[in-house]
Design a protein around this nucleic acid. Structure first.
Lengths: 122, 122
DNA sequence: TCTTATCGACTACGTGTGTAATCCTCGCGA
DNA sequence: TCGCGAGGATTACACACGTAGTCGATAAGA
């Protein structure tokens, strides 16, 4: 029943997944500048993530230190699976086929994936 | 500048991608029962999709026939790419690696993907 | 001690989304 | 001819989201 992570929240999570624990201030500094967010916006997002128990904070002196409660890997897995289920009937092959066709896959990509698959086969 | 398709709207689109043109009534009948939507809900969604120019309708007698204006393939491509960019730095290999690891990929899957890659290499 | 900068909490507000009821129009049967 | 029902259009409404301002406590400096 892990709550949904919105797009804006996701940007904050990436910061915390990259490094944690961090204070709110540090998160603000690390959020990609393209977002152009005010510090308040980031704090609101931290608050919402807290409310959803996606992150936690512990008091350290006057401030809080924030850290993720869900692993990036789990989140990525869930999102990937959702997409695969929704758009490719849950099958991996059509997904790969689609991406490979549409997005000029390089020979190197192919080599890497082949190596990967070889490993898995054992 | 194709507008965003929400989750509920997507369910309607799947119906129309599967078969079109359809009347509103027919769409209502074909939407997966799990959704438990009232006919009005479906009509609202059709209206929103129309407003966004994601579908079109032509008058046929006293009703409308609805049909998609965007190809499923284009939608799928865009969504897949978004996920790949957001979670895997735009690289296909990590995506495949991730899915392959986490979701007990079968030998058959591996064989299929290998065949697919072989084709692409030519 | 008084002032101010800092930090988190609370409040705000427009837009999107899921879900649907209500309204309006027009052809059809009584 | 007149009310009714099917179908589309309009309106509704709560909640999520993106974005941010304001409030209240406090620590640090004057």
């Amino acid at each position: 029943m892990t709550e949904r992570i919105s797009d804006a929240e996701h940007a904050v999570m990436e910061v915390l997944w990259d490094e944690s624990p961090l204070t709110a201030q540090e998160v603000v500094e690390r959020v990609p500048a393209e977002r152009g967010w005010s510090a308040n916006t980031v704090k609101t997002l931290l608050g919402r993530l807290l409310a959803k128990s996606i992150i936690a904070h512990e008091e350290v002196g006057r401030r809080y230190h924030y850290r993720p409660l869900v692993a990036r890997d789990d989140y990525v897995a869930k999102e990937s699976r959702k997409l695969m289920d929704r758009l490719f009937g849950g099958k991996l092959t059509p997904l790969v086929a689609h991406l490979a066709e549409r997005d000029a896959i390089t020979d190197q990509d192919i080599a890497e994936i082949e190596a990967l698959l070889k490993d898995l086969k054992s």
